[in-house]
Each structure stands twice: as C-alpha cells, then as structure tokens.
Amino acid sequence: MTELTTLSRSVAGKTALITGCASGMGRATAKLFAAEGANVAATDINADGVRATVAEIRAAGREATAWTLDVGDGDAIRRVVDEVADRYGGLDILVNNAGISRGGPIDGDEYEVRWQETVNVLLTAHQRTIRAALPYLRKSDSPRIVNIASTEGLGATAMNSAYSAAKTGVIGLTRGLAVELGKEGITVNCICPGPIRTAMTERIPEEHKQIYARRRTALRRYGDPEEVAHGTLHLCLPASSFITGVALPVDGGLTVRRA
C-alpha cells in the first residue's frame, strides 16, 4: 500500500464563519463543525435563533459564538467579519449559507421587489462576505470558501426565476473566484442542496414531500440538513486541498434522475 500523505482530515482548531445558523442547514453545519473541533462563528438575522444554536453547541462542550447579522447589510458584514477574526485570531473557513426564498411569476406585481431582495441576500451578500473575509483567509494555511447554491442553479422550477437566477449566479461566482484565488491556495466551492427538510420547505406537507422525492430523486427521499453539512465539511477539510470550483449536488440524485 502506497504511503498516504499527512494531509489533515480534520477542521479541529480552524475558525469557521457560517451565515444563517438559526435553523436548517446553517444550524446543522455549525453544530457539525463545532463537533469536529472548529471554532464556530455563527451568524443569523434571527438573534434568538442563532443564540439557541450556539447555546446548544456550548452545552455540548464545544466552541461557538453568536452574531446577529443581516447579510443584506454590507456594513454589518464587514463589522462582523472583523469581530470574528478578532475574537478567534483569524479566519480559515467561510460558509455562505444564509438564504431566502421569494417566488412569484415574472409578470407579478411584486417581482421587482422580490428580485432585489433575492439577489441581495443570495448573491450580493456572498461576494461581500468573501471580500470582507479575504484578508484573513489569505493568512490561513488552509483557506476554504463554500457557498451554498442550490439545484435550482442547475435546473429550475417555474415561478422561482429570481431564486434560480441568484443561485445560478452563486455557481458562477464560485467558479470565477476559484480561478481568481486559486493561485493563492484558496479553494472556492459550492454545494447545490436539493430537497432538504429546512424552514424553506417546511410548508410542503409531508405527504407531498414524499411524492416529490419518490418521483424526482434517485434516493426516493428528502434529505436532512446534516447531510448537506457533511458535504460542506468535506470541502473544508485541509485534505480537500485539490478540490476547487466545483458545484457539488447534495440532492439525493435529483439532478441526475431522468425517469
């Protein structure tokens, strides 16, 4: 057997800033990274929610700090990123997870407003957090950026064009920065979650979730937030040093299933 390298398979001791941690995938990611020994800087617009996530992590004897952050606010992003780096003495991992869902027909009265909100939170915020974090990531020995896109960036559902456009934009941003920052050793990847049990999908009745999953996914089921978190963790390991610019579906086979 060939000798393996000594690349680390752990995020222990790394500092990870994760947005949107009050619920769903962000919360699961925060908990997983903390459980793996990372210092977790958890943010969310929902102050109570993110504090609850952090309390849960600390109760388990792991390290996390909560920040209230509206990712639609560029000034707030810069302030929080600086505070995180100050608190933990640097920043190694950025996970852009915070998101919203604003559907509606292209000719609907509220389309313009929904478009602005959607693009601002799902796409503009990503480049802002990345730009704010970049000075710190450049100092890390294993800098990682993971953006949470969506299978809606690979295909599309009717009446969700703003969401789909923004998520497709996230994939483009990921690819562009992977190429741009590659020479600095910073990896930039994105995850494309499919049907996951999160706040966004909680209004879909369980019975309808099952119908959708059976008809559309290879694994015939909805995914859990933790299964997305594991994808993110994998891309953030020091050992994942040669993976950059990918859009990794974590979708139970939604995008590959034809019939």
Partner: peptide, 21 residues
C-alpha cells in the same frame, strides 16, 4: 391544496401527485 409561490421549489406538481391518489 395549493402552496404559496414561495414553497413551490421541491414541491411536487399536480401531475406528480395525481398518480398516487
């Protein structure tokens, strides 16, 4: 039932649901 537009991503279409019921 009809879902709000926000919830249509990852929800089955009417034709998806038809064959089960």
């Amino acid at each position: 039932m009809s879902l709000p537009a926000e919830a249509t991503v990852f929800a089955p279409s009417t034709s998806d649901r038809d064959h089960l019921s």
